[in-house]
Design a protein around this nucleic acid. Structure first.
Lengths: 110, 110
DNA sequence: TCTCAAAATAGAAATAGCGCTATCTTTTTG
DNA sequence: CAAAAAGATAGCGCTATTTCTATTTTGAGA
C-alpha cells in the first residue's frame, strides 16, 4: 500500500471542459459582458442586444461581436435573432449560478 | 430618464482582478493542481510538495514549477519551504470555496 | 430600389502564453 | 568536499489571443 498509483480519480475530460469554459470567461471584456447579462437576468431584463452590450461594456462593435462569438461557441451564451437585432442571454442556470458565485467571491468583502 | 448613462456600477478594478485570477486558473494543468490541493484541503492532507504534485498531475518538474509560480503570483496558492522541500497550499478560504464551487458546477451532474 | 443600421467576418500586426532543454540555487548525504 | 536531490529560473521556438480596420451580410424603411 505504498503511494504508487493512488492518484485521485479526477476526470481529465471534466477538467479540460472546465478549463476551456473558464478560459472563455477569463477576459476582462468577456467577464464584463457576463456581469451585465448575469446581473440583469436576476433583475428582470433578460434580453440584451449587441448594441446594448456595446454601450454597457464600452469598446468597438467588432470587438464585442468577436467576444460574443467566443462565449456563444462555448455554450456560455445563447443568441436569438429578432428582425434586425440579435439578443444575447446566459445559456443556462448553471452558468448563471457560476457567475453569481464569482461575483460573491471577487466583488464581496475585499 | 432615457437610457443614456444608466450603466450598472461594475467596478472595473474588481473585474480586472477577477479576470486575472480566472485566467490563472483556466489552464488544464493548473486546474488539476488546484483540484488536487483543494480536494485534500478538505480531506485532511493540506501539504503537498512539488514532487507530490508532479506525480499527481503528471508532467515535467519544470513545467509544474512554472505553473505553480503563476498560481503563487496571483495569490491563489501559497508556499512554505521546509528544509529541502517546498509545500503548496490553497492561499485562503475564499479560493478554496471558489474551487469547490467550480467542482460542483463542472463535475456535478452532467 | 436605394439607403441605413445591426451584426458578423476577414485579414493583419502585435502581444501573450506554452512547454521544452539547460542551467542555477539550496539543502541533504556520503 | 563531492555528488545528488528538490525547486526555480532563463532562453527559445512555436502557437494562440487580442484588437484594429475594412468589408460583408441581413433586415427595415423611405
Amino acid at each position: 500500500m505504498e503511494d504508487q498509483d493512488n492518484h485521485i480519480p479526477f476526470n481529465d475530460a471534466d477538467i479540460d471542459r472546465a478549463a476551456r469554459c473558464l478560459k472563455a470567461m477569463s477576459h476582462p471584456l468577456r467577464l464584463k459582458i457576463l456581469c451585465v447579462l448575469g446581473n440583469n437576468s436576476i433583475l428582470g431584463k433578460d434580453q440584451f442586444s449587441v448594441q446594448d452590450i456595446v454601450k454597457q461594456v464600452g469598446t468597438s462593435q467588432s470587438n464585442i461581436s468577436q467576444h460574443l462569438a467566443i462565449l456563444r461557441e462555448k455554450d456560455i451564451l445563447k443568441s436569438t435573432k429578432e428582425a434586425n437585432q440579435v439578443f444575447y442571454t446566459i445559456h443556462d442556470d448553471r452558468m448563471l449560478q457560476l457567475i453569481k458565485m464569482m461575483r460573491e467571491v471577487f466583488c464581496g468583502n475585499c
